[in-house]
């Protein structure tokens, strides 16, 4: 159940009530900021993990498949709340912005200052372009189906090209040890990770890998398909959490 208001009897809050509701806005925003920085960052670290931590894990195959798939989860859930209850089309951007803040804090303080890795070796990826488009599509369509299909797909498809300007230069070849490797591979070789032997990298694996040596489009479209399903699933998770059962008067 929810509160009973009609357009004819509706009176906007004014004076003290308006000031209190505005203060409540800021309180919720600050809490949401910390909540999403912590929880989404943790979720992302546990699911995407090394693919996002290290520059030498950002391959053509698994990185563009896994990252958007796990990255669309919280945005979908928060969008469900923000849009259905408040008509605020900012859920995805808010979540991904919080994730970016969390990852940058971790990379600078945990990876660089605490564990001495150069920051360029642990540059995070960005999903902000994908999130902006997802928010815009939800607002313009006002439809879960349209957003899941087109927004979810674009969320995945935009990921790799949006990140290539950041990481493309790490794929420049180097002749090293009688072979070729990328700058990213060399960073992984040179900057010693005791618990990260090279064979642990889950990159470029599997037999259904490329069409004419192009692996990324396959991964991106596979991710796009899965993102449409993942978006829907997490939309309903968000909706389930955002109950107004106990809200009788406002």
């Amino acid at each position: 159940m929810s509160v009973d208001l009609s357009s004819r009897s509706f009176r906007p809050y004014t004076g003290e009530k308006a000031r209190i509701t505005r203060a409540y806005d800021y309180l919720i925003l600050v809490l949401a900021l910390f909540l999403f920085i912590g929880s989404f960052h943790l979720h992302f670290a546990l699911t995407v993990g090394d693919w996002d931590f290290w520059v030498d894990w950002k391959d053509r195959q698994w990185w563009p498949l896994i990252t958007p798939l796990m990255g669309i989860t919280f945005p979908a859930a928060v969008q469900a709340v923000m849009w259905e209850k408040f008509r605020l089309p900012l859920g995805a951007t808010l979540c991904i912005a919080c994730l970016s803040i969390g990852t940058w804090i971790a990379r600078i303080f945990a990876y660089h200052y605490w564990n001495y890795f150069p920051i360029n070796m642990v540059l995070p990826s960005t999903m902000l372009p994908s999130a902006l488009v997802l928010d815009a599509i939800l607002m313009l369509s006002n439809s879960l189906t349209v957003t899941a299909i087109f927004g979810g797909s674009l969320f995945a498809l935009l990921f790799y090209p949006a990140n290539w300007p950041i990481f493309g230069m790490f794929h420049v070849p180097i002749e090293y040890g009688n072979g070729q490797m990328t700058v990213a591979d060399l960073l992984g070789f040179e900057y010693i990770r005791t618990g990260m032997p090279e064979y642990l990298r889950i990159i470029e694996r599997g037999t259904l890998r490329t069409y004419g040596q192009y692996a990324t489009p396959l991964s991106a479209f596979c991710s796009a398909l899965l993102c449409t399903l993942m978006y829907t699933l997490w939309w309903y998770i968000g909706k389930w959490f955002a109950t107004v059962r106990y809200l009788t008067k406002i």
Partner: peptide
């Protein structure tokens, strides 16, 4: 944001 928009949406 929240309360004001929620009320309007409900109305």
């Amino acid at each position: 944001l929240f309360i004001a928009r929620y009320r309007m949406l409900q109305a």
